[in-house]
Computed example of a mutant assay.
Amino acid sequence: MKKFTIATAAATGLAAAVLGLAAPALAAPTAGGNAADTISQLEAQGNRVIVNRLSDQPLSQATVVGINPGADIRSTVRDYRNDDTYQQVVTGKVYYVDVR
């Protein structure tokens, strides 16, 4: 019974440590903001932005009317410490931004 308690405590501690080290997700902007600022913010977070213009307004004067997430962007990441390669690492997302 004592081994079970120690193993359970160790597993719980390890799970808490992993969850504690996880990076918080960055919130995506919402519709209604300035188009240029929204696009810049999304790109600064490592995302790819595809703009769908619904008017002839310059982006500095346009307003975001919709943001739709698309596919994940995956990249190959090299782990030199363990001499391994990970190919399924999500490094960003594609966003479709409708502006007017």
Rank of each mutant, 00 (worst) to 15 (best):
A17L: 13
N47H: 10
Q57I: 00
A17M: 08
D37I: 09
L54S: 06
G70N: 09
L14W: 05
M1N: 02
S60Y: 04
T5Q: 14
Q45R: 11
A16I: 01
N34P: 04
T8Y: 10
A22M: 13
N47L: 07
T8M: 15
I6W: 07
A17V: 12
R74D: 10
T8E: 09
R53C: 04
N82M: 08
G13A: 11
A25E: 14
T76V: 13
I67W: 04
A36M: 06
V65M: 12
Y95Q: 05
Q57P: 00
Q88S: 09
D84E: 08
T63S: 14
R100I: 06
N68D: 04
D84H: 00
A31S: 12
T91L: 15
Q88L: 08
A9S: 07
P29W: 04
G20A: 13
N47T: 11
A9R: 02
Q88C: 01
E43Y: 02
I50H: 04
N82I: 03
I39R: 11
V51W: 05
P58F: 05
K2M: 04
A7V: 08
A44E: 05
L26V: 09
I73S: 14
N82F: 10
A31C: 06
R53V: 05
V94S: 08
A11G: 06
R74P: 03
N47Q: 12
A25K: 14
V94R: 10
V97M: 13
P29Y: 02
Q88G: 06
A15W: 01
V89I: 15
V18E: 03
L59C: 13
V99K: 14
S55A: 13
G70F: 09
N47S: 12
Q87H: 11
I73T: 12
D84P: 00
K2N: 01
T76P: 00
L42V: 01
Q45M: 07
Q88D: 15
T5C: 03
G92C: 15
R100A: 09
L42M: 06
M1R: 02
